[in-house]
Design a protein around this nucleic acid. Structure first.
Lengths: 193, 193
DNA sequence: CGCGGGTTTGATGATGCTCAAGCCCGGTGG
DNA sequence: CCACCGGGCTTGAGCATCATCAAACCCGCG
């Protein structure tokens, strides 16, 4: 279980992990299993843990006043789940996070994560992740305001093809900010070409 | 000129700036003046400098195949201008950045910025900025996929009222991902209430 | 006075949503 | 073995939102 996390950290960092580093990581990260549909976070709560997805798939979404879900983030193996803002600021979240498949996580609290900053590879990792997150967000904002639904779908297909295999269409539609009906029609058009 | 930057850094950090810190900052940050409409960055270039806005207002935007501008970011005093991804990865940018008003910047290269990480207040600052950027992006994505134009405008009015005073409506419209005509009509409706 | 930049208004049409119905398919239980 | 159910996907009709295009207006400024 932890091996996967170690591999992941190594892949992201230039400095190796010592045996004592790994010991610290094993102590700080707590395994957690979620069954399909089980909540990892509910709106209104503070996101006390962030989770590394060892196996499974998760959704992060807001729910509007009409009860419609709007998916802001999807996570599968080797991704993270958690509301970064709530987690670091310890403020109540506006998002729900739940498991879309049965999922194995390695979870950690904000305090424990800060405690790991002495591990060079970890501070390197969190910095890179924050940056990558930033870049991805910028692009998604640009897409959202610049392109029609059809193009955004094509882009998703290219950028994260894994998502299309792991999540049903209505989830993908919500991620793109459109309805499942619209996505269905877009795909029919796309096939024609 | 540098005083404003120092004040800004102090406001964001818990550690004070020493005289030698300030000396380093003065050496690393180069003043630059831009006239209205002058480019700070053009698509295809690598964003070699990021700029702290001492005075003025700037736009960052992409241009689609029809030649339409899509504004992804607006910066005024005490904000930063630059394409974070291109700047840190040294890859060509897809964005244009130009001055909307005559603008005074303090610019710095990626290498020089890294060199400043020895100043505690600076590494604290960049970390906080990255995080804030992350949070803001997440919210904007959520808005873009969840809410109709009218609500997004109301949100902008609440979050960044300064923007409405500094930029003309067609710029705001582009930032919201709608046309100037739509924004004009939205505002007429809003006044009625 | 005329010009340029910005805003407004109207008419028309595309895009995407809502609601409703039907289909497909892989369970589950009689 | 089949009936039924639930989840997901598709299709259609009507409607809301927003874009496009074109024209007019407003106003500060040379």
């Amino acid at each position: 279980m932890y091996e996967i996390l170690f591999q992941y950290i190594k892949a992201y960092s230039t400095t190796p992990l010592t045996e004592s580093d790994m010991e610290m990581l094993r102590n700080a990260f707590i395994p957690k299993k979620l069954r399909k549909r089980q909540y990892f976070l509910q709106a209104g709560e503070v996101c006390k843990h962030t989770g590394f997805v060892v196996k499974g798939a998760m959704r992060q979404y807001s729910v509007d006043e009409k009860g419609v879900e709007h998916i802001v983030r999807l996570s599968i193996e080797n991704w993270w789940a958690g509301d970064r803002e709530s987690f670091t600021m310890l403020t109540p979240s506006i998002y729900f996070i739940d498991a879309w498949e049965d999922t194995d996580l390695l979870t950690i609290t904000s305090a424990d994560l800060n405690g790991l900053s002495s591990i060079a590879a970890m501070s390197e990792l969190t910095k890179k992740l924050d940056l990558n997150q930033s870049f991805a967000s910028q692009k998604r904002i640009n897409s959202a305001i610049s392109f029609p639904a059809e193009k955004r779908y094509a882009e998703l297909e290219k950028t994260y093809p894994e998502f299309l295999l792991r999540f049903p269409q209505h989830v993908i539609a919500s991620y793109l900010g459109i309805t499942k009906e619209t996505l269905s029609r877009i795909r029919r058009q796309a096939v024609k070409k």
